[in-house]
Every structure is written in structure tokens, then in C-alpha cells.
Design a protein around this nucleic acid. Structure first.
Lengths: 358, 358
DNA sequence: TTTAGCAATCTTCAAACAAGAGTGCTAATC
DNA sequence: GATTAGCACTCTTGTTTGAAGATTGCTAAA
């Protein structure tokens, strides 16, 4: 970590604060007016030149003020910024939203509303990624016959979260040799279910998907056709990384930011968001660390994100974890949004865990 | 319906075709060059003046060509336009997408992919609204205990579609007087389930929601607490109009259209799309009619949709129906997109019905 | 009824210009 | 040695101007 003099730190901090608020290059005069009365603009200018040489600032053109670079923001976030706590109104709003939606029957809907709330409070794009269900440990698997050929698979993992999947057991080729219409008898289903639980519970969903063939290989006498089916379809049944696990809300917020008045830049970002898979993989890369993680501009590697920052936090439901976050231009109120996401994740931990594990 | 002379019809049609392709006001000369060789631009100009007086065209400014008004487009769609059939490649693409996704386990995901495909083929915003589940007739209701306090409710309607809902039966106040921890016995659940089916099946979900109190009013001796629970929570359990039933894909497409280079206009539209509830209510209003419905610009009433057209079609799964459609600027290839939606709806009817009802 | 011709109108683009903002440098000052 | 006042210089932004081009509406002729 490069060291900066106190003056440099003061100037950098002041400049960033002003820039975040004003969204224009900041002049030496503006800094003096706002924060550093005691020194003259000329002095500030000298410091700004130093900071530019060190790569913390840059000048859009000769006669303009200066803006922070990604490196500048990074230093600010790591060493200068003071966290801004949420106001009690904001906290209350979050709690209220949580409570009113938590009782809703649709887990996915709850997550969608959380991302909406983040968007509302930050005026940026709110993101929630559903808990990584594939890493959950299978607690119980249930099979409920729906009709002649469809079965509802209910998967419960140890965090208490469940997913239901409808599967169609109607492969004309291998199983039922055509005659046996109502292929699935309740009895067979029950037997198969019991055996599946015996062999698979305690494993993670991902492990199951990868190793099911081996684990069910020496299938028993009874209901071998159901076992075959599960082996064959494991890649479908035990896969949970669909683009529908991602909730993005508040696209309008982001396009109202001055940096996205540039139509082309906006289009690039929107295209990126439209392809949800790439957003998910970005989040997966980001969320290796615990706590709140900030990726500023070029730190994101992805070209479409070069002018954006991504702030995320990890939440937990039992042993499952998911990601909650926001995207905005690099010029954003890190001091506030970090608190926002920290608090949101905390609330999710508390309330969702209570709800699902109690 | 106003009658137009043949020449007026020719000019209007030609002008609209050129305008759809070029996205600029169309001059008399352009029309002659492209379609009406045999008459002079001056003649076309006279006709254009007539059409303007009748409200089919308008001039952005004195020395510009002319653009169709909403009324002009309406006449075109109703009386001039020839449907453009889909190419066999396009049809194949649609079929392929359908087949590859239909086998997916998540019904919602399938619908999302359909809207993605519509977006891809039309270069506009693709829309799919999930079947109106609330109008489905209850075929079977099943209760599966998940753990001490949670029960999975499986609702099957006559079309074969199912929805699952997790409910928490843990009202400390009224039922279990605190001692009885594991409140839900399998036996009670089974009894309650049987009775619920007896009293509610054959009714639509919406009817159930509205009249459940009356129908379960004189509850029997056994398991009255479960009945109470269902009465109290009916508004949650039997409600299916969440914003998550709406699938919008391809926002980027729409913002690349020249009419949305205007940042403000784009922001308005995006804000509208962000509020999904309003999109759903727009679709509900639109979808009263059968077949493909086109709403052009101001026909949409909503201020945010004044510069857009909405093309929708109704699809059916058994007795359930849903809406599929697209949004774009009023300047769009109606002739093509109407076919696209018609064909998509037809495919959905065939394949989804086969899948769910077979 | 159609058309040729033409003046009139409006947009668009580029060039030119003025005003303003902000810097970097130099020399004076604390 | 650090700080600052003063000032020339640079670049942006907004406005004005003018020329070129597109298209029309009108009139008079075919």
C-alpha cells in the first residue's frame, strides 16, 4: 500500500466526496471552498498534481478539474472513507419490507423484493442471488405422484430450504414396455424414495449429481426403472443454477445516473444484465470472500463493467449461502452502500435462518 | 371505417413500409422511387396532403417528409398490411427452443425462455405472462408435511399445471396451546386434505379464495385448527398474481431502436417495465380478446406506452390461458410480428397442452 | 387530373467566436 | 522550504452565422 501525506489524503478524500455528490471533475477551488479553507487553491493544485502522478486522479482534459481513478477510489474505500450508518428510517424500512414479505409463500418472491428494496434505498441496481442450493446437504427427498406419468420431487436441504421439481417419467423406450400405462405405483414410488434417501442423504446436491450413477449403480431388485430414471436425469433434477435464481431490480435507477447518459455505454451494460448467466458468474467469482466485497471499475475484469462498481455481501441460511449486492457507476456512495449491504445481509441471516431453521 | 381511394391506400402503404425500414420521415420522392414509378412526386404530395388532413400522416416540420400517425398504422394493420409468414428457419428455431426447454423441470423457466426467443426473433422486448392460475379449476390439493411446522401445499388444476406453496402452520396464539410442538400429525393432515378436496375441488382458485370461509364454515370435528388456518391464510395460499409471473426479456433490443435514443423517453419506458405490476395490468386489459391483438401508441392509454405498440396473443393450456407478446416502438414490422406471436401461441398450445394434459 | 417548376421553409452541419473554467508555471512571500 | 498570488494558456461549452440540402406547397401549364 502506497503511503500518502496527510495533505494528500485530505485532498483525495475531499475530492472524492465532492465528485460523488456532483458528478463532475472537481477543481482546486471547489475543494478549498468545501473543505480545506486554510490553504489556497494553488497549494491544493500542487497536491493534485502529485496525486495524479501517483495514479490516484486523472484529468479529462487540460483545463478541467480532476476525477478519481479506480485506484483513487480503492484507496478511499480502504483507507479514507468513514462508514455511514443507515438512518433509523432506512433500517425500519428494510425491516418492514422483510417482515411483510417473509410470510409470503413464495421464497423466490421474497428474494425479488429484497433486491427491489436495495434498489430503492440505493438508487442503484439491486441484486440478489438465490442461495447456492447445489451446495446444500440433502436432508430429505420425497416423491409425490401427480398423475399417470408425472412425479413431484421435493428436495429438502439441511438449511430447511426446499425446491420442488416436476419430472415426467414416461420414457417409452427403456422402461414400461408400452403396455403399462400407469407406470408409477404408489408402492414403487415409496420404496424407491426410501432407497434414494438411504443412499443419497447427507450428500450435497452437487455431489449427488456427480456421483449418482456410482451410488445407485448396484440397484436393488425393486423399482430399478425408477433408479435408472434418476441416474439418467440427474443432470436435470439436481441442477440449480438457472438464470431464474438471479434477481435484478431497479434498472431505471442506474440509467438515470449521469455516467449512463452515454447511450452506447448504457446499452453495453444493459446487454450484460440481459445475459443473466454472465452476471451470475461475475457474482460467483466475487463472492469467494466473506463480508462485504467491493469491486471498483477495472477490478471487475469484464469489459462491460469497467465503468461500474459492484458491491456484494454474503448471507447465510443455515449452511447455505447466497449473495446480495448492487451495481452502480464507480462514482457511488461506497460509505453508505457498504453499510446497506452489510445490514441487509445481517437481516437476511437473522430472519431467513429463523424462518427456515426454527 | 373511413374509406380511402386506391391511390391514398397505395401511398399510405408505401410510406409506412419505407418508414418502418428507414425510421425517418418519408418524402414524396422516396415513395415514387420505391413503389409508385408511374406517378410524379407532385401527385404523391397532393395525396399526402389529403392523408394528412384525414389524420393518417403527420409532418414533424414544414420541410420534412411525413410519418404515419397511430391512426395511419391502425389503418395499415387492419386493411393494408399483408401478413409475412415466418421463414422455415425461424419456425425451426422456435420449435427447437421449445423442445429443448420443455423437458426442463421448471415450468417458469420454460416461459422465460420463450420470452427470450421472442425477443431474439423480433429484436424487440419479449413478454410472456404465466397462465392465469387463479382461473384454473382445482383438481386436487395435496398436503405434504415438511417439518414440525411447515407443510407443502400442492395445487393441481385441471389443465395439469401445478403450483407448490410452503406454508408455516405455527400460529402460537389460536391453535396448539404451546405444548404440542409437533403440531401437524400425518393423520390430521390426511384427513384435512381429504375434506378440503371434497369441499373445494371443482371450483376455480379464485372462487376458493373468495368463498372459502363459507365453504369451510361449518367445519367438522376433526382437525378444525387446520381448517381455520386455511380460512385465515386463503388470501395468501390461493393468490397467484405475483410480479414473478411476468417474464420480460430483451430490454437491450428496445433501447437500440432509434426512437429510444432519446434518453428521457427510454427512462420512462424502463421505469414502466421495472414496475411489473403495471405491465401485468396492461396485459390483462389487452388480453380480453382472442387471437392476436395489436395496440398502437395512444391506443394504450398509458402515458409511458404512447410511443410504443403492444402485440399480444393468447395461448391455452387446457382451460387455462396466458398471454404472450412483445413491445416495441410504434414503428415496427407488424406484418411479421403478428405472425410470430400467432405461431408462438400455436406452438405453446400444442406442446404445452400435450405436455401437461397428455 | 396530373405534372413541371420554383419559391419558401426548415434541418443539419461546420466554422467561427466569445465566455468561462481551471490549470501550470513563475516569482514573490511567509 | 512551503505556500501563494498572479497570469498566460488551454480546453470546453454555448451561441451565432452561413451554406448546403431536403422537401414541401403553390401556381400555372399540359
Amino acid at each position: 500500500m502506497e503511503t500518502l501525506s496527510q495533505r494528500e489524503r485530505d485532498v483525495l478524500q475531499s475530492l472524492i466526496q465532492i465528485h460523488i455528490a456532483m458528478a463532475v471533475p472537481v477543481s482546486s477551488q471547489a475543494i478549498c471552498r468545501r473543505h480545506l479553507f486554510e490553504v489556497s487553491p494553488a497549494t491544493v493544485r500542487n497536491t493534485m498534481m502529485d496525486l495524479e502522478k501517483k495514479g490516484f486522479l486523472h484529468q479529462p482534459h487540460t483545463s478541467a478539474g480532476r476525477e478519481p481513478t479506480d485506484k483513487g477510489y480503492r484507496y478511499y474505500v480502504d483507507s479514507l472513507m468513514k462508514r455511514e450508518a443507515l438512518t433509523s428510517e432506512e433500517k425500519q424500512l428494510l425491516r418492514d419490507k422483510f417482515h411483510s414479505h417473509l410470510k409470503d409463500r413464495d421464497t423466490e418472491y421474497v428474494f425479488n423484493e429484497i433486491s427491489r428494496t436495495i434498489a430503492q434505498l440505493s438508487h442503484q441496481l439491486g441484486i440478489v442471488l438465490f442461495p447456492r442450493f447445489e451446495e446444500g446437504i440433502l436432508q430429505k427427498l420425497e416423491l409425490v405422484p401427480l398423475d399417470r406419468k408425472r412425479v413431484l420431487v421435493i428436495i429438502t436441504v439441511t438449511s430447511g430450504l426446499i425446491k420442488t421439481i416436476t419430472v415426467e417419467i414416461n420414457r417409452p423406450s427403456k422402461f414400461s414396455n408400452g403396455k403399462n400405462k400407469s407406470f408409477i405405483s404408489r408402492k414403487k414410488l415409496k420404496e424407491a424414495c426410501q432407497l434414494l434417501n438411504e443412499r443419497l442423504s447427507g450428500l450435497s446436491i452437487k455431489e449427488i449429481r456427480q456421483s449418482i450413477q456410482r451410488r445407485l449403480g448396484y440397484s436393488p431388485q425393486r423399482a430399478p426403472e425408477l433408479f435408472d430414471f434418476f441416474i439418467e436425469e440427474a443432470n436435470t433434477i439436481f441442477r440449480f443454477n438457472s438464470p431464474r435464481e438471479l434477481f435484478l431490480e431497479g434498472r431505471t435507477n442506474i440509467m438515470l445516473q449521469p455516467e449512463f447518459e452515454d447511450h452506447h455505454r448504457l446499452a453495453q451494460l444493459m446487454e450484460f444484465l440481459d445475459k443473466r448467466e454472465s452476471v451470475i458468474s461475475l457474482l460467483n467469482r466475487q463472492a469467494r470472500k466473506q463480508g462485504v466485497v467491493v469491486s471498483i471499475g477495472s477490478e471487475n475484469a469484464l469489459s462491460q463493467m469497467q465503468t461500474c462498481s459492484l458491491v456484494t455481501s454474503t448471507y447465510n441460511i443455515g449452511d447455505l449461502w447466497g449473495t446480495v449486492g448492487m451495481i452502480g457507476p464507480t462514482r457511488m456512495r461506497y460509505s453508505k452502500y457498504i453499510s446497506l449491504l452489510e445490514y441487509t445481509a445481517k437481516l437476511m441471516n437473522e430472519l431467513l435462518t429463523e424462518y427456515y431453521l426454527a
